[in-house]
Amino acid sequence: MLSTLNSFDTHLLDGAPRSGLRGAPRFLLEFLYFGVKNARACLFVGLFFGAVFLTPRAGLFGVPRYDVLLVAAVAIQAGMVWSKLETWDELKAVCLFHLVGFALEVFKVSGAIASWSYPDFAYTKLWGVPLFSGFMYAAVGSYIIQAWRLFDLRIRHHPPYWMAVLIALLIYANFFTHHYIGDYRWYLAAAALGLYARTMVIYRPLDRDRRMPLLLSFVLIGLFIWLAENISTFWGVWRYPNQLGAWSAVHVSKWSSWSLLVVMTFTIIAHLKHIKASIHVPDA
């Protein structure tokens, strides 16, 4: 299994020129590889959601569902490190996402806020939050780490790091403070828009470099997280208050929240040593 995956990755990373490929066939093949590489980068996400779909709500062998999902998430993460699909430094970043996400979950499910809830019993539940929930945030970081390698990502015109860190901290703080002093999400989105307006992602879907505004990637990743959230709530992993009686789609406004969370996640990833080497910050 591992050797097959390594062989597949070697094929995906093969940037040998395909000089005879042009026009519509080139577009279609590059689009195909773009999709395949993104799917491959979602390895942790795919395996974890597989566990979500396959685990009955009643759990397995007398073990509650949330506890089964925690075991599955830890096993997947350990497997990725053991197989060297993620390094120890990358694991540290993923653990940071886990802690940041878990702290946010504890706040959001608290009795005073009650933005959503985890209705099922679990032994590994702290302050109303099952421990597996932090892995859902870590999955976003895992995707970006894997995509960075598979697409040979490089960043041009990244803003000064102190500015990126400041906006990331303000975004995270707003998830808490908007319950008390107002929601400044759109002001922060405007600030991020100005900060990253010139920032471009250089990526390689096949054998040629392509360019994309970094802001567009934030929005696209946020969209897919929103879609995954709809699937998770439909499966009853957690529920918003308006979904307790009968399921309904998660409000589209959550898309903007997830896109801002991606900005924060990207900022953490950008500080990894081997990734920082591929980021260009202008002198002025």
Rank of each mutant, 00 (worst) to 15 (best):
M1I: 07
N6A: 13
N6I: 13
S7T: 07
L13I: 06
G15K: 13
P17K: 06
R18Q: 07
G20I: 11
R26E: 10
L29K: 09
L29C: 01
F31T: 10
F34T: 11
K37F: 04
A39L: 07
F44Y: 08
F53D: 06
P56F: 09
R57K: 08
G59P: 15
L60Y: 03
F61W: 13
F61M: 09
R65T: 02
R65P: 05
L70Q: 01
A72K: 07
A73N: 13
A73R: 06
I76P: 01
Q77R: 12
M80F: 08
M80E: 10
W82D: 10
W82S: 11
E86T: 12
E90P: 00
L91W: 04
V94Y: 03
C95Y: 09
F97G: 01
V100Y: 00
V100G: 00
G111M: 03
I113K: 01
W116I: 01
S117G: 10
Y118C: 05
Y123D: 14
L126A: 04
W127K: 10
G128M: 06
P130V: 08
L131D: 05
M136K: 04
A138D: 02
G141E: 02
G141R: 01
S142H: 07
S142M: 14
I144A: 03
I145F: 04
W148R: 08
L150Y: 08
D152N: 09
R154A: 15
I155R: 02
P159A: 00
A168L: 08
Y172G: 04
N174M: 02
H179Q: 14
H179E: 15
W186D: 14
W186G: 02
Y187A: 09
Y187C: 15
A190N: 06
R198I: 09
V201G: 11
Y203V: 11
R204A: 12
P205D: 04
L206E: 15
R208Q: 13
D209E: 13
I221P: 01
G222L: 06
W226K: 00
L227P: 06
N230C: 08
S232A: 11
G236A: 08
V237Q: 05
V237S: 12
W238V: 01
Q243T: 04
Q243M: 12
L244S: 14
L244R: 09
H251A: 05
S253M: 11
L261M: 06
L261P: 05
V262Q: 05
M264K: 13
F266E: 13
I269M: 12
A270M: 14
L272Q: 15
K273T: 03
I279F: 07
V281E: 08
D283C: 05
A284Q: 13
A284V: 08
